[in-house]
Simulated assay, not measured.
Amino acid sequence: MTDPLTTLSGTLDTVWTLLARGATDRDAPARHPVLATSGRDGAEARMVVLREARRDPPRVEIFADRRSAKVSELSAEPRASLLVWDPALRLQVRLRARFQVLAGEAVAPLWQALPGAARALYGGRPAPGAPIPEPGDHIADPAAHAFCVLRGVLAEIETLHLATLGHRRALFRATDDWQGGWCAP
């Protein structure tokens, strides 16, 4: 059996399979990527939940509370990266994207589809990041106006496969119609 990560097309197909699984399977490695943004004091990184991954057009989606720091950071500087690590494949995937914040009527069907426990994550009091005396002092207060979707339109996909017989690195760009090329690891 041929390792798909030895070819550019196989590598890109593997990335999209990994992302698609992450958007639907709670146990998939790509379910919780790291989102890196540019914050007020420099780089910021946090784990998020991948909610959607589409190959055509190439994009990813994350749900967020509109009052969170990541939303204001992406509003100020929409270029950001997602980082995925698949330990079984020994594959690192970096996605560079331009994010837009979708809210209100544009995301109403997604809000309606969320189960109650998930809705409780958006709109609590006080707002995300605000100081509280004790963990129990945060009050869940589901609010549709606090819910938003961070949609990232992909510009680049970079992979690093930590292979036993030599690491392989590839870079795919939207500007090159995702043809890709090998890079020194």
Rank of each mutant, 00 (worst) to 15 (best):
90 R>E: 14
17 T>N: 13
183 C>R: 14
73 E>F: 09
13 D>F: 03
31 R>M: 10
97 A>D: 00
95 L>F: 07
106 A>S: 13
78 P>Y: 00
1 M>K: 15
151 R>A: 06
66 R>M: 05
5 L>W: 12
7 T>P: 00
74 L>P: 02
122 Y>G: 02
66 R>G: 14
185 P>N: 11
71 V>C: 03
37 T>L: 04
49 V>I: 15
127 A>P: 04
19 L>P: 01
162 L>A: 10
4 P>E: 09
164 T>N: 10
157 I>V: 15
41 D>G: 11
93 V>Q: 03
89 L>C: 05
124 G>P: 03
128 P>W: 00
26 R>L: 12
54 R>K: 14
22 G>Q: 01
88 A>C: 07
101 V>T: 09
6 T>Q: 14
175 T>G: 09
72 S>Y: 06
132 I>C: 08
142 P>N: 10
37 T>D: 06
168 R>W: 02
118 A>K: 09
134 E>K: 14
175 T>L: 11
132 I>D: 05
130 A>R: 15
81 S>E: 14
52 E>K: 06
128 P>N: 06
25 D>I: 11
7 T>Y: 04
7 T>Q: 06
53 A>K: 05
118 A>Q: 11
136 G>R: 15
113 A>E: 13
154 L>W: 01
83 L>C: 11
90 R>G: 07
16 W>E: 00
38 S>M: 11
91 L>K: 01
166 G>K: 09
80 A>S: 09
147 F>A: 01
45 A>I: 09
146 A>Y: 00
78 P>S: 11
134 E>T: 13
70 K>T: 01
